[in-house]
Design a protein around this nucleic acid. Structure first.
Lengths: 253, 253
DNA sequence: CGTTAGATTGAGCTCGCTCAACCAGTGTGG
DNA sequence: CCACACTGGTTGAGCGAGCTCAATCTAACG
């Protein structure tokens, strides 16, 4: 809630039962009581602008969020300002779990676009674990999913070439976006700058630009309006030697 | 249980109540009933040799492990054989959680030394969630801890120089080892080869060797008997600009 | 029309890579 | 006891992917 962008806390309470995300096939069907609890667990909604810092390293947020719409990213900084983007957050993703469980946040989260978020009370997490073991299991599942994504990212940064890394990253983000319906006729628009890509891949901005240019020349992606349009996910996947998301239906809190 | 090394399954059943690890100050005190459940959750012990593959990518292990003694590492491979080590596992760490929750393993785990492991039945995880919310919470906590370690690793590989990376890695491993009592008079011995370090840092073997040499020249570490001895953790931390483990007491299943 | 954010391009450098030996310790079979 | 092989560490030489520095360009915006 610090940071450049504005943020507005609303109590609009779109009930979870009619959450548009929940209808998507990517998400597991919830039982009635579970759904009711989640709905009661929800404390309100938060709308933030692009550029807003949702959570920041070192802070002790009392909240846990689920993204309803918009894009964001998690990152860490070194003392001297070097930035590493750890992962991106999309609709349906949970934010702040690490902080809720372990106290202090060890990374920050920033909005890449205007975002709408569900807010949950950290304090009620215990009640969830006590009364809804199925949901508790789901939360662990969500943590394990994040771990998997990080494993892949590590493999990519550690062992792939710049071109492979870029291809992997864009294919990965586009695949996730597609799963939550953010694709217009095969194409996926990702609101990131080349600086974001550089800070995700561990490359310099200049080299990232030259690398992305190769992807553009191969007609795998486009770059325009300060964002990326993925044209050929399969082409990117082949280039990166990546098998794609192994993802089943997942829970949505 | 595939792989080069031998493995022996034992039913020796050292009861959890008298587990030597559990006495360490690094681990949380458990309630009597929790402890009893964990003990009943335990199905046996597994002893493996150095080099044994405990779990492998693509498999569907029915087990979940906690390390009682010894060292191991998690890794992923690219089709062409490039290997990325994701993290190391030490006594008290849990192995196979991702696989237990999500089905198929997406990484492998290999022993760096002879290891002794507690074996748990994957099927009983649900019962744990149902009957012991505190333990369920602990498991999520453990997953979040792994996530934190990966965040740090990503920052390191992505944004630190080779020398900083090496310093970070060895300081990190030595710190964790120290927490579980694996330190003789200030020094910590880590049973890894330079090839392991290279595959963790995303560097070539040759460059890793030259980088480690600098650490040796600065008297921060020693290298001998096919292993590493960390002499000066604080020196390594300073070199890497790393603040150290932010770790509280943690649960031990 | 000046300013700013983001993309682009060229030039030169350097960190980390590959290739190729070589060395030391250890274990094995004859 | 020696010859041989094997693992893991060490070192030098030359190369190249990715870096920094420094401009330039474009579009959006006030």
């Amino acid at each position: 809630m610090t940071g450049r962008g504005d943020s507005t806390e609303v109590t609009r309470q779109v009930p979870c039962e009619s959450c548009p995300l929940r209808q998507m096939p990517a998400f597991r069907e919830f039982e009635k009581p579970e759904l009711a609890f989640v709905s009661s667990f929800k404390r309100g909604e938060l709308a933030v602008d692009k550029g807003a810092t949702l959570l920041s390293e070192g802070s002790n947020s009392a909240h846990l969020f689920t993204v309803l719409s918009g894009w964001g990213f998690r990152y860490k900084l070194l003392e001297d300002g070097r930035r590493q983007i750890l992962n991106y957050v999309l609709p349906g993703d949970m934010i702040g779990l690490q902080g809720s469980l372990m106290g202090e946040m060890q990374h920050s989260v920033e909005a890449l676009s205007p975002m709408l978020l569900c807010m949950f009370e950290r304090d009620r997490l215990m009640a969830l674990y006590r009364d809804y073991p199925g949901l508790a299991y789901d939360i662990t599942w969500i943590a394990a999913r994040e771990e998997r994504m990080l494993d892949e990212a590590l493999l990519s940064i550690g062992r792939r070439s710049a071109l492979e890394r870029a291809a992997y990253l864009l294919a990965f983000i586009a695949s996730r976006a597609r799963k939550v319906g953010m694709n217009g006729k095969g194409k996926v628009d990702i609101p990131i700058t080349q600086q974001h890509v550089a800070d995700t891949l561990g490359l310099s901005l200049v080299h990232t630009n030259k690398t992305i240019r190769k992807l553009i020349d191969r007609k795998l992606v486009q770059w325009r309006d300060g964002g990326c349009t993925v044209l050929d996910i399969d082409g990117l996947m082949a280039l990166a030697d990546w098998g794609g998301l192994a993802e089943q239906v997942r829970p949505l809190l």
